[in-house]
Design a protein around this nucleic acid. Structure first.
Lengths: 159, 159
DNA sequence: CAATATGTGTCAATATTACTGACATAATTT
DNA sequence: AAATTATGTCAGTAATATTGACACATATTG
């Protein structure tokens, strides 16, 4: 009767904690940069997904972020006013506003992403390719099915 | 000159997105349960770490959560008033209040953790033990050094 | 013992991110 | 023409967090 060590529940609890601390850690540095611009994490998410999905519509962005349009409005409005994002009327459907980063927005995005990917990169190097595969596989399984489409695992959004 | 595929940056961006969607997914279900009790994610964090570190002091909890004591006060106060957490004066240092879950608190914690660990457990099973090792290793590397002490990777807090 | 430091709690004011509900406008589709 | 879609905006509210100030009890140090 060999006792499993550690117990499954202990293992799973450790995984919960890993996610909590890792998420907090990897958002912290970017938050500090954003604060210098008077922006918060919500702005980062918008900038990030607009970078990833150029010419994204407002609705498509809402469906990725899963927030209300009133919440997005404040954040997106500020980013447009302050010149991080350009909003243009879509050519084929003139109700739509397509979103794209300005040069200024692109620069900020690059800086924010650089600091986060540096952290991930160090972790990947310390772990090795097999571990990285496991990391990705587990996270993909954790993600809600509906969200897997939004995860840009190879295929960017079409609009 | 074989081209790496996918490019490192693309790989790293995918990892950022995985963390974002996974974190959002795995907090969502617990948030829904908490809402039934008029509680939020902040209450969950307190309940969770008190469960993990029985007889934790308020200061120790603050240093794990890295929030201000004014923020904790509202959350912890509510949990004590509503009977989820017991606060007792420490025997050796009577300035300290030690925190411990009541039966009611323990029951809620079990329910919240069960729904989160179920998700993780499914992901672990779908991935297999080697992948799980990689998952853990990468996350540990992502975590700030200061936070690694708070991650209960085997050793619970002592006070 | 007196002074200082520590642990906790609380008051007040503010910020960020989010929510619901209601309504307006423009453009597209039926 | 009517209905639907995409977007925007106004008003009110909530949860989570912040900073700063202060009070009090207890412990430690000189």
């Amino acid at each position: 009767m060999a006792n499993e060590s550690p117990l499954p529940e202990e293992d799973l609890r450790q995984a919960l904690e890993l996610l909590f601390f890792a998420y907090r850690g990897f958002t912290g540095e970017a938050d500090a940069i954003l604060a210098d611009f008077g922006l918060g994490r919500a702005h980062h998410r918008v900038i990030y997904f607009v970078k990833r999905n150029p010419l994204l519509s407002v609705n498509a962005l809402l469906s990725i972020l899963k927030i209300t349009k009133q919440s997005l409005s404040r954040v997106l409005g500020q980013l447009v006013r302050e010149g991080f994002i350009d909003q243009k009327t879509d050519k084929v459907d003139r109700r739509r506003r397509t979103l794209i980063l300005t040069d200024k927005g692109d620069e900020l995005e690059a800086r924010l992403t650089a600091c986060q990917t540096a952290r991930i990169s160090r972790a990947f190097e310390a772990t090795g390719p097999d571990g990285v595969e496991g990391f990705k596989k587990v996270l993909i399984e954790i993600i809600n099915e509906e969200d897997r489409r939004d995860y840009t695992g190879g295929a960017p959004h079409t609009g």
